[in-house]
Amino acid sequence: MPFKLSGFLSDPFAISTISFGIITWIVAIAGAAAADSSKFPRFTWWGLVYEILLILVILSLYLYNIVELYKFTLVGLLSIAFVYTSNSTNNLIYNSNDSGSLCCGAGCMLLSMLNLTLIIYFGGHPESPTNQFIDSFSLKSHNHNHLNDNKYNNHNLDDDEDNNEFKPFQQPPAMTTPQQVQSQSNLRQSQLTTNNHLKSGTPYMSSSQLNGLENFSSSDVNNRDLTNFNNDETPTMTFRYKAKALYSYDANPDDINEISFVKDEILQVDDIDGKWWQAKRSNGQIGICPSNYVKLLD
């Protein structure tokens, strides 16, 4: 859970709402300090303290890029803050003529509007029109190590040479013959064996490790019985839904899992629980796409 300032700065909605909240809180607390303390409602002080703590919590979640994991918790906390600020607004504006109280009441009214906006956003489904519209302005397209990113263990992780499994959704180039499949499998196995020996301090492979490779030729693959072809080498993926691209998207060149597409293109999609979906283009290319760039079709 690394601290990343970009997790906050790349989201215009987070910048605008948190900045607005801090400014209005300052207005409210300044009015409270200038108000007549004998007539000032005490629960408003508690509400203002609670409000600034909540704003700082939301800011921290954005900075650690884990706000998606606490959306439902934030809805409950913001509902409590909305009760504080709305009641304070009613008491300060309608039950007092003191200028300080009126200033604090104005700040509490703005905080109530902020709390209601955040409740609608955090309580909404990621595929709702309002959330998709707000998220479309986010600059996090190429920095997706949150949300559904946790599901794929941060698919931007560096290659682990000791791991014999491929990255999620990492597909080999389009293969039409068993020869290409066998060639890639042999190359992968050779790379893993070589890396293991380099790490162990052994620069060369022993003759026993070459058994079965010295007599290998392409004719062995050509004579292979296609009926015995192992389907596990080319895993198939099922796509249950179709989606239409709302905007064009260029994949991050540093991330081999992403795919590019153009506006109005029809994609086959699946695993649509998070913000990054499995997708397949009409040309057969498979990868992941940002959910706020596409719309599910009926």
Rank of each mutant, 00 (worst) to 15 (best):
D255P: 02
A279M: 00
I259G: 05
M113T: 10
N283Y: 01
N228A: 15
P290H: 02
D264H: 08
L210T: 10
N230I: 02
G31V: 00
F122R: 02
V83N: 07
C103V: 09
V27F: 15
D264T: 05
A32Y: 06
Y247E: 04
L213S: 11
I259T: 04
D98M: 11
K71T: 10
G212M: 14
Q285T: 15
S185R: 13
N115Y: 13
N131L: 00
P126A: 03
S260A: 06
Y64P: 01
P172Y: 03
K263C: 03
Y62I: 04
I15P: 01
L61G: 01
I93F: 14
G100A: 09
S217G: 05
S10Y: 08
R281V: 06
N163D: 05
G7H: 08
D298W: 00
D149N: 09
L226I: 13
Y247W: 04
L192E: 08
K244D: 05
D220E: 15
Y121V: 12
I266V: 14
L54H: 07
S218A: 11
S128R: 01
L63P: 00
N228T: 14
I288S: 02
I80D: 01
A32R: 13
Y247G: 00
Q184L: 14
L114P: 04
S217C: 06
D271C: 02
I29N: 04
Q189V: 07
V67C: 00
S183D: 14
L102T: 05
N154D: 09
I18L: 12
I272L: 03
N148H: 07
K4I: 04
F133I: 00
V67Y: 03
S6M: 07
V83C: 12
F20Q: 09
N228E: 13
N257V: 05
L69S: 12
Q184M: 10
D225K: 10
N156E: 04
F261I: 04
L198W: 00
I119F: 02
L139R: 12
E161N: 06
S200P: 03
N143V: 15
G107R: 09
A243I: 06
N87H: 11
L213P: 06
A106M: 12
L77P: 00
A33H: 09
F43P: 09
H155M: 01
G21F: 08
Q171H: 13
I22Y: 13
S206F: 08
F82K: 03
K4Y: 07
N148W: 10
M113P: 02
G123L: 01
N65I: 04
N65H: 07
K244T: 14
S19V: 07
N153I: 01
S248A: 15
K199P: 06
L54I: 02
G31D: 05
I52F: 12
P173R: 08
A243L: 11
C108E: 10
S136H: 06
S291W: 01
Q278A: 11
G100E: 09
L61Q: 09
V269W: 01
N283I: 06
L111D: 05
L118M: 13
K140I: 08
Q180S: 09
K244G: 03
G123M: 00
Y50I: 11
K4C: 02
T89W: 11
Y62A: 03
A30N: 05
T117C: 09
L226N: 14
P173E: 03
A245Q: 06
G76P: 02
P235G: 01
S138Y: 13
I26V: 15
Y62S: 05
I266P: 13
S136Q: 07
R224H: 15
N283G: 08
K263E: 10
D220N: 15
S183G: 14
